[in-house]
Design a binder for these strands. Structure first.
Length: 387
DNA sequence: TCTGGGGTCCTAGGACCC
DNA sequence: TCTGGGGTCCTAGGACCC
C-alpha cells in the first residue's frame, strides 16, 4: 500500500512570525520589503537567521553576516528575534497540523511530517494539503509549503520546491522528472563538503548520483552514508513518521565574543556563564550528566575540544564547571586569542538517587543551595518578562 | 564579507577485557 | 615467545540539519 506523507514547512519562519506580530501591532508588513531577522545588529558578528523574499531576491542569504547584508542592501529592515513569540507561533502551527493527523513528527520549530495514509479517504491529497495550508494562513496569518510524497524524503524535497504558500507532490514516478535534474546539493544530507567531493568526481545532479554504482560512492563518502545517499537519490526512504518525542541526548551552550579574547579571566567568566546555563537546563529537565565536554574556537575557526567522564552523573553547576576548567587548561595554551567558548554535557540520565561518597565534598550542600537560588532567580525573571 | 547557536549521527584509533 | 579475534568504552574530529 502506498503511504501518503506530508511535510509542512513554514515559509521564512522567524521572519513571517515577526511580521505577524508587527502587523498585529499596526506596523507595516516586513514580508513585503527587504528584511531580515538577526541577533543583535550592533554586534558585527551577528548573522542572519531568516530573510524575506524581497531580501532573498537581492542576494541576501540565511547565515550571512549582517554587516555583509547591509553592504548589499543599506535600507535593509532588521528585526531581532523573539523566541517566546516564535514558540507560541510554532505551537499554533503544530496544533493545526495535528488536527489533520495524529501521526505527526515535529522535525524542528517550523517543520513537521504527517502520515496521511488513512486521512485522505476519497479525497485527493492535494486538496487536503491545500485546505491545511489555507487554514494556517487564515487562522495564524502566515504561509506554509506542503510537500506530498510516498515517504518522508520525497515529501521534504517537495516542500522545498517553489515557495511560498504552495503545495507540491513528488511521487516515486515523478522522481526522474522533478528530482533528478536538481543539483546534488539539493538532496537532503548533501552539504557543502559532500557536494564538493561529488562534483570533483563529476557528479553534479541527483540523477547522476542515483545512477552511480554504490561501490564508487562508498569510496567517496564511506559505506554507510553511501548506502543512504544512493537510496535517497533514487527516491527511496523507509523511515517511519516518529510520533514519540525523543529525549535530549546532549545539552550545550556557547558564547562568541565580540572580539577575540586572550585574557584568562574573561574566558573563565564566559565558561562560568555557559556552565550556569547548561546546568540549569538539565536540572529543569530532571537530567544528570556523566560526560562533560568543552571546546574553544580560534580566530581561524579551528576548534580544540576535550571531554571527560564524571565519577558519577551530576547536575551541580560547580562540579560541571570544575571539569570544564580543567579541560580548558588542557586544551588552551593560555595565550592564543579565542573567538568562542562552549560547554556541553551528554550521557544524560534521569537517575534520581545520589550515590553518597564517603569523601563527598563538604561544600556540596553549599553548591546545591547556590543552584537552587539560581533556578529561583531564573524562574522569577522569566515570569516577569513573559507574562 | 568574515562567518550564531543548538542539536544529531558517524568514524577511526587506542585501551582493555575475554 | 609470539600469536588470534571480538566486543565495549572512550576520545577527537567531522559532517549534516534547522
Amino acid at each position: 500500500m502506498r503511504r501518503i506523507i506530508f511535510h509542512i514547512d513554514v515559509n521564512s519562519a522567524f521572519l513571517s512570525w515577526s511580521a505577524v506580530k508587527g502587523v498585529m501591532e499596526g506596523k507595516p508588513d516586513i514580508r513585503l520589503v527587504p528584511s531580515v531577522v538577526s541577533g543583535d545588529p550592533n554586534d558585527r558578528r551577528s548573522i542572519i537567521t531568516a530573510a524575506s523574499i524581497p531580501a532573498k531576491k537581492l542576494g541576501i542569504k540565511t547565515a550571512q553576516p549582517v554587516s555583509m547584508a547591509l553592504r548589499t542592501c543599506p535600507g535593509l529592515v532588521i528585526v531581532q528575534g523573539d523566541w517566546a513569540w516564535y514558540r507560541q507561533c510554532s505551537e499554533g502551527f503544530i496544533g493545526i497540523c495535528r488536527s489533520y493527523s495524529p501521526v505527526l513528527q515535529q522535525f524542528s520549530i517550523d517543520e513537521c511530517f504527517l502520515d496521511m495514509t488513512f486521512r485522505c479517504p476519497q479525497g485527493n491529497p492535494v486538496e487536503v494539503a491545500t485546505r491545511l495550508k489555507d487554514e494556517v494562513k487564515t487562522r495564524l496569518g502566515f504561509t506554509v509549503n506542503v510537500g506530498i510524497g510516498s515517504n518522508k524524503l520525497l515529501a521534504k524535497m517537495a516542500s522545498d520546491f517553489e515557495k511560498p504558500d504552495k503545495v507540491h507532490t513528488l511521487w516515486e514516478d515523478e522522481v526522474p522528472e522533478k528530482m533528478w535534474p536538481l543539483p546534488v546539493r539539493d538532496l537532503l544530507w548533501v552539504g557543502k563538503k559532500t557536494e564538493r567531493r561529488l562534483t570533483d568526481y563529476g557528479i553534479h545532479t541527483i540523477g547522476q548520483l542515483a545512477q552511480l554504482n554504490p561501490g564508487s560512492l562508498a569510496r567517496l563518502v564511506g559505506n554507510k552514508f553511501a548506502a543512504q545517499l544512493h537510496e535517497n537519490a533514487n527516491g527511496r526512504d523507509s523511515s517511519p513518521v516518529e510520533t514519540e518525542v525523543q529525549e535530549a541526548k546532549s545539552c550545550s551552550a556557547e558564547r562568541t565574543f565580540s572580539r577575540d579574547l586572550d585574557d584568562p579571566r574573561e574566558i573563565d567568566r564566559a565558561l562560568f556563564n555557559v556552565a550556569c546555563i547548561v546546568a540549569h537546563r538539565i536540572r529543569a529537565d530532571k537530567f544528570k550528566a556523566s560526560t562533560v565536554s568543552m571546546f574553544v574556537k580560534y580566530r581561524d575557526f579551528t576548534i580544540s575540544q576535550k571531554q571527560c567522564q564524571m565519577a558519577q552523573p551530576t547536575d551541580v553547576t560547580a562540579l560541571i564547571l570544575a571539569e570544564a576548567r580543567r579541560l580548558l587548561s588542557e586544551a588552551w595554551d593560555g595565550a592564543t586569542p579565542i573567538r568562542q567558548v562552549g560547554l556541553g554535557v551528554s550521557k544524560l540520565t534521569h537517575e534520581s538517587f545520589e550515590q553518597m561518597s564517603l569523601f563527598e565534598d563538604p561544600k556540596m550542600e553549599y553548591y546545591r543551595e547556590w543552584d537552587r537560588r539560581y533556578d529561583e532567580e531564573y524562574a522569577r525573571e522569566h515570569k516577569s518578562k513573559y507574562r
